[in-house]
Structure formats: structure tokens, C-alpha cells
Write a protein that binds this DNA or RNA. Structure first.
Lengths: 340, 340
DNA sequence: AGAGTCTTCCAAAGCGCTTTGGCTTTCCTG
DNA sequence: CAGGAAAGCCAAAGCGCTTTGGAAGACTCT
């Protein structure tokens, strides 16, 4: 059942039927009702391909997915996706993932924009002066950055959490508890979030005349194994830290294992605070010693990004407003006063 | 730059240019070269929307993503996606995720098929007599099931691992080691994979005249917390098992924690074998006691599904061939002879 | 040389929708 | 009641590609 058939059936022109269906004003309400009725009754659904060709709108939002045999998709992604999908569903938006060589995403961005394959895109895990941000900005497609990039001469719309503030708070608490040697087990420090977190820790330390030693900060891919290794390395050096801030719950698993392997205890020998993105399958309160965390639901962020994308597509949102969400510090059993 | 302009520029008809570009035989090789050349030089790229409208082909594969505020996407999904994306990239295929109410996916399947939004779909986490499988089968869109459904009067193409065989092997090993009371901490037993795993365990036990007690099998959503709870329940009952087979590494984290909380040890008091889908961020060899596993890369499965989908789209694959991959049993420190 | 067969190309008809520009009709105003 | 505005509808022109049904010319064969 297509427009032609439907309009013929109603003895109306395609124009009128199309307008009636799309809510244009120049059609009699009585007629509109008739049309709507018939459309529903015959289960008419406009062919999206045709509509796309005519309007250029696709009803899809895009994401360029970095891939490669040695490229792992971050497990956070799936939670973000949950939120995104949940919102998208209620607005009849689909999400198209365009896999790209991790080292050449630019080509793919250009392609999906040139081809008008999506109405908007989002960018995640941005780095300072991220080329992708600059690119989509010049390409002129609506977009939202999840996270932040820095060092551009233009503004852009983003949704981020206050990573610096969160880790500042966490470090401040540890310092207040008497810790003098803090360590940071961070994610990839080429990404902005990691930079911000380190900045937060440094700022808190500086406020008390302390510093974050060169050897007290690790930047690694966020796996359990890397958490373990980093912790071993940290705790086996001469000026071992008495407290650790850790960028992910997954790495925290490794931290806990390492501490145990070394015959130490949390929080007796080491205080630990980790960032919790709120996974349904791994909760900080369920660690053998309940974990203190800086907490921010990445799923909510996904929903928010979808919401903003939808708003930008429909022209409800404009400009380059960036929003930064505060992060909760949740204190549990894994922190205590510095030993000794 | 569109076809019209390009053909005008070459003083050829659109027909000829189109054919030259798409490799049709009825065009002079000399002409083809000229066309190809000009296309490349001017960066001509056919408009996919237009092509879609004309051919019906989209170059996309679809997945209906169950969502809802209380619906969590399985973390396995992201690994599967890695593999899928990796293959898709090399074949210029995009993946479209259509979020759907978890309780009504049918509408969405119908929509994406009716709208010709994708060339093929895949289905994951199937249940016995899964309605989605029956649906896409009748809708006539190419598809592959990742996993298996059962109880249909038709065949369908799937890629699955030998869950039954894997857990049969695991249980057999445990029995050989003298264990008499096994327990199974399984995933949602409405899904086929869980049913097969249970079947495998039962078969192994039966071969030695043993059975899997009612209270020795748990079916839960695969989270760390549920692994913990299940283990506590199992180990605190009178006829506590001496060995556990566990359906996921994430739950195994909870198992290990519960065992520790109870002051017991692995493998001294309890042997443990878990299924490992091969996450880059959590490895069985890195558990405090290296974990024995049944091992099968879900990422490889993703790549394979993508490959088969591509083959079906292009007509290279037909029929309803199902394939079942063997699963490796990897023995590590977490298993030992039964205590006592 | 005439008939038949390829080869190579083209004009035009879709695909199904939106949108422009215009044409009636109706309804007010003064 | 003439004149103008507003309402309601339509025909047709795109959007950019593929594909059908020829047609013209070159080539082969008898």
C-alpha cells in the first residue's frame, strides 16, 4: 500500500494525502480525519527510502564504531547504549553503527555525512583537540559529544560529567583522612576524561601542599589485569601509596586482588576509591570490602545524549551549549585513615 | 556530483555510466575505464537513498535491541559487536540497531522488514520456539540466529556453540575427580543456551548414576551479585555441592567472593569451572585461583555471523544450515579432587 | 550482398515520497 | 454585489538511481 494507491482509494491527490498525514495546515480537518482513518485501516506506512530521498531525513542517528582485530570496544559502551536506545525507542529513532578502521575514522564520518545516512551523530571518548569533533563541526551535521574535547577555537555541544570535580573530591577526602601518598590508576591518558581526573587529584593534593608522584600515576587500558599490575607495581615500590583512586570498577577488581595477593588489607593498609559508571552486573557495594566510589550513571548519559540529538535534529536545540553533570561521592568501607 | 552530472560530463547516458560503475557486461571496457576514472577523479559517490529506492538494497544489517528502563543489555553484546563490526567494516556494511520495547519486539521486526530498512537481521539469545525466529522466517528476510531455538517445524540457519558438550565435558571432569554433588549456576533458563548447558551437566552426571538436585541448580541473570547469592545459598545448605559449574565469568566473580566469605577455599573445598566468552577485560587466568573454563570467543562468533549474513545477502549462502562450534575445556587451578 | 548476431549505447519509465506553484471555491468586507 | 482574502485541493516536478526495451552500428556467415 503506497501513497498512490491510498490517494486513489480516497479520490484525493497524493499531495493532499501526504499533507494530511504530515500535519500540514492547508487541509480540511474533515478531510484529514478521513485520510488518517483510511491510512490506519489499510496499515499504510510511508516508505522510508522514498521519504529519505525526497526529504533527506533518515530518522537515524549515527555512531562511528572503531574496530580492528586488536581494538576492543569498551564495556561501558553497552551501558551507554542502553540509555541511548531507551530514549531512541520512544522517539522512533534508530541507531546506525558504522564500523571504521580505528586509525581512519575520518573517511567514515565523511561518508555517512556525504551520503546523508544519518540525521545526527554522537562522538564518545574524545581526546583533546579531537579531530573527529573538528571534522563533524565543519561537516555541519548535528552532533553531541559525550565527554569533552579541548583546545578548539570554536564551541560545540557536549554532555559530560565533572570528572575533575569527582576526583578532586575523592582525593580531598583521602587527604583529609591523613593520606599523604596517593596514587591514581587511570584510563588512557590521551582521553580527556582521564586528564580531567588526574587534574582533579593534583588539585586536591596541591591544596595541602602535596603532589602526585610521577611513579604514582598509571595510565592503562581499563582491564582487571591492568588494575592488578598497576597496583602491584605501586605497592611494591619504596614509597608505596596508602590510598588509590581508580578510574573504573573493572580495574578495581584487579586492585583488590593485588592487595590480597600482597597480604595487605583494605582499608587497613590501603584506601581505595573507584569511579563507578553504574553497571548492573558489577556493583561497588558488593566488593569484599564495599567500595567507595564516585558515581555517575553512564546509562543516564546515553539517554541524555539521545534526547539532545533528537532535539537538535528537530531544531529544538541550537547553539553549542555544553553541560557538565555533577558526580556523587559515595563513601563506603574501602576508605579509612592513613595507616601508621 | 550526481549521476546526471557525471554522465553529462562524459557525454554518455546515465544508463551507461551506471552500468559501467556497477560492473555490468554490456559496456565497452574502454568506456568503463573512462567512466571509472572520471568517477574517481570527481569523487562521485552514488547516493544511497536513491539507490535504495531503486534497488531495495540498503547495505545494512539489522538488530532489534530490546530496551526498557528495567532492561539491561548483556555485556556480552559488546564483544559480539566487536566481531560483527570488524567483519562488517571490511565489507562496507553498517549495522542498524532498532530499539524496541522488550515485550514487543515483533512490531519492530515487522517495521524494519516492511520498510526494507535492512538487508538482513540477526537474532541473539534465542529461546525455545522463539517467536522472533518464527517471525523473521515467515517475513522472508535473510537472517542468522546466534544461538539456537528449538521446536519448530522448519529449519533455519544458525551459528551456535556446543553448550551441551562443553558443560558435559566440564561436569564429566568434575565427576572423574570424585565429585558427587555438583551444582550449576546458570543463566536465564528460558534461553536455549542455559537449557543446553543444564542438559550437558545432567547427562554427564547420569553417566555415573548421579543426578543434579533440584536445589543444586540456579537460574539467574548473570551478574556478580547473583553469582554470590547463588553460591551462598548452595554452600549453606545441608548437602552443599563440592563443585560448581558456572555459566559466566562475571558470576564466577561472585562465586569466588562467596567462597571466601564463607572461609572456604578453591579448589580445596570447592571446585569451580566457568564458561568464558573471552572478554578482554576479565580473564580467567587472572582470578586469585586461576579459573578452569569452557572457552569460546563470542567475538569470533560475531564475525562469523556477519560473514554469513553478508553471504546470504549476496546470495552466496542459502538453505538452513546450522553450525555448532566445539568448545575448549581449559583446565586451570580451580579444580581438584573432591574433598574428604 | 543480405540476413542474422553481437556489441555498445540510449531514452524513458519507474521506485514512492515531498513540495512548488497554481487553480477553484468559499467566505468576508465595505 | 464587486473585490479580495483565505481555504482547500491538485498536477506535476523533482529527489538520484536502476532497469527495461530498444536502436544503431559493427561483425560474421553463407
Amino acid at each position: 500500500m503506497n501513497l498512490k494507491q491510498l490517494s486513489h482509494m480516497l479520490s484525493l491527490s497524493q499531495t493532499t494525502v501526504s499533507r494530511a498525514l504530515n500535519g500540514y495546515p492547508e487541509v480540511n480537518e474533515e478531510t484529514r480525519r478521513r485520510v488518517m482513518d483510511a491510512a490506519k485501516r489499510h496499515g499504510y506506512r510511508p516508505n522510508p527510502s522514498a521519504r529519505r530521498l525526497a526529504t533527506g531525513k533518515t530518522g537515524m542517528i549515527g555512531y562511528v564504531l572503531p574496530t580492528g582485530t586488536s581494538v576492543d570496544i569498551d564495556p561501558h559502551f553497552v551501558e551507554f547504549l542502553s540509555g541511548l536506545g531507551d530514549y531512541a525507542r520512544s522517539h522512533e529513532l534508530d541507531l546506525v553503527l558504522s564500523p571504521a578502521d580505528a586509525d581512519d575514522q575520518e573517511t567514515t564520518y565523511r561518508r555517512i555525512v556525504a551520503n546523508r545516512q544519518v540525521d545526527a551523530v554522537y562522538i564518545s571518548s574524545p581526546r583533546p583537540a579531537d579531530r573527529r569533533v573538528a571534522l563533524v563541526n565543519t561537516l555541519g551535521i548535528p552532533f553531541i559529544v559525550h565527554g569533552r574535547s579541548e583546545g578548539f577555537d570554536f564551541d560545540y555541544p557536549f554532555t559530560d560529567i565533572d570528572n575533575e570535580g569527582a576526583f578532586h573530591e575523592a582525593a580531598r577526602l583521602l587527604v583529609q583522612l591523613g593520606h599523604r601518598r596517593l596514587a591514581l590508576i587511570n584510563g588512557d591518558d590521551r582521553e580527556t576524561f582521564a586528564i580531567h581526573r588526574e587534574r582533579g587529584v593534583r588539585r586536591a593534593l596541591a591544596a595541602s601542599g602535596l603532589t602526585l608522584g610521577e611513579r604514582h600515576v598509571c595510565s592503562v587500558v581499563m582491564t582487571e589485569e591492568n588494575g592488578y599490575r598497576a597496583t602491584r607495581r605501586l605497592l611494591e615500590q619504596s614509597d608505596a601509596p596508602t590510598a588509590i583512586a581508580c578510574s573504573s570498577l573493572i580495574m578495581a577488581l584487579g586492585v583488590v586482588r593485588a592487595v590480597r595477593d600482597l597480604g595487605l588489607t583494605i582499608p587497613g593498609d590501603l584506601s581505595l576509591i573507584a569511579h563507578d559508571d553504574v553497571f548492573p552486573w558489577l556493583k561497588p557495594e558488593n566488593f569484599s570490602v564495599p567500595l567507595s566510589t564516585t558515581r555517575s550513571s553512564i546509562r543516564l548519559a546515553g539517554a541524555r545524549v539521545a534526547e539532545r540529538l533528537a532535539a537538535r535534529i528537530s531544531g529544538l536545540e541550537e547553539g553549542a551549549r555544553g553541560e557538565v553533570w555533577p558526580v556523587d561521592l559515595v563513601v563506603r568501607g574501602s576508605v579509612a585513615g592513613a595507616p601508621g
